[in-house]
Write a protein that binds this DNA or RNA. Structure first.
Lengths: 139, 139
DNA sequence: TACTATAATAGAATTATTCCAAGATAGTAA
DNA sequence: TTACTATCTTGGAATAATTCTATTATAGTA
């Protein structure tokens, strides 16, 4: 909490109670929550919180480069409060998303017919797999 | 058209005029259309076609492994009638999506802490960049 | 030719997300 | 400490993408 206040105070980012609750929920969270996950959690403490607040806050964080929007799940967006370049893996059984911290950039050279048309600025790898608990269930 | 009939006849996939039109539109199409793109196109010839038909058809094709659903664009799903393993690049200026035909699988080993938890089954790389026409506009 | 399983349609329903107007408040400057 | 104002929160409406449902139509077959 003190850390959060220190980080955001006086940076043109108004620290409201709802925002602090969202920031606390996200800090160190590696579950890749959806907007609904965040909303449901914050609602416990602030029953009148609205989705607009959740979306406004994640957008403000994204604009500041402090949160990533993840597209690995075709059904809905997930958010990752760790903005450092990394990749993700999703279980095709239960939808669980894990982080992949490994720098593949040296290996991701593009064919010339692509670089002729696109100036590449970034990349992100989606891995798919089956998590251990889903494997335990089906075997 | 004959090719399409040959490919699907007697395979439990009913070839209706609407489906044939969708298949013809998709065949060799590298523009990665959205459901709306397909709908708009088919509507020209079959004004009463519905979105349900478009979604049913792409889902049937996906189930048969003949079409990929692409998640690179956070705003909407795109479809790729080329089901062979490949990757994509999207222009962050105009949203144009290009194909990347290169097999990176040798380079995409995963850290042990990931393979301990997930049995990996696949991967897909999203590249981001600026396409040539967007570069021409801004410079 | 007739039958039947499957598809097409219109429109309603659902879900995710964004927008909007009104009231509330955090951060500031005095 | 006070007062100001830019920014935030809220509820609800709006939008957009997608799915569902009941009904009618039809492709493929026997």
């Amino acid at each position: 909490m003190e850390r959060i206040v220190r980080k955001y105070r006086g940076k043109g980012f108004k620290l409201t109670p709802q925002r602090i609750a969202i920031l606390k929920f996200l800090e160190g969270n590696t579950n890749h929550p959806t907007a609904d996950d965040i909303y449901t959690e914050i609602k416990k403490k602030y029953p009148t919180v609205s989705f607009a607040t959740v979306y406004n806050t994640v957008q403000a964080l994204r604009d500041r480069g402090e949160l990533l929007e993840i597209t690995i799940d075709p059904e809905r967006k997930h958010f990752d409060p760790n903005p450092s370049a990394h990749h993700h893996i999703m279980c095709t059984g239960c939808g669980k998303i894990g982080d992949v911290f490994f720098d593949y950039s040296e290996s991701l050279g593009l064919p010339e017919e692509v670089t002729r048309e696109f100036a590449v600025t970034g990349n992100h790898i989606d891995f798919y797999g089956i998590c251990s608990s889903c494997r335990a269930k089906t075997s």
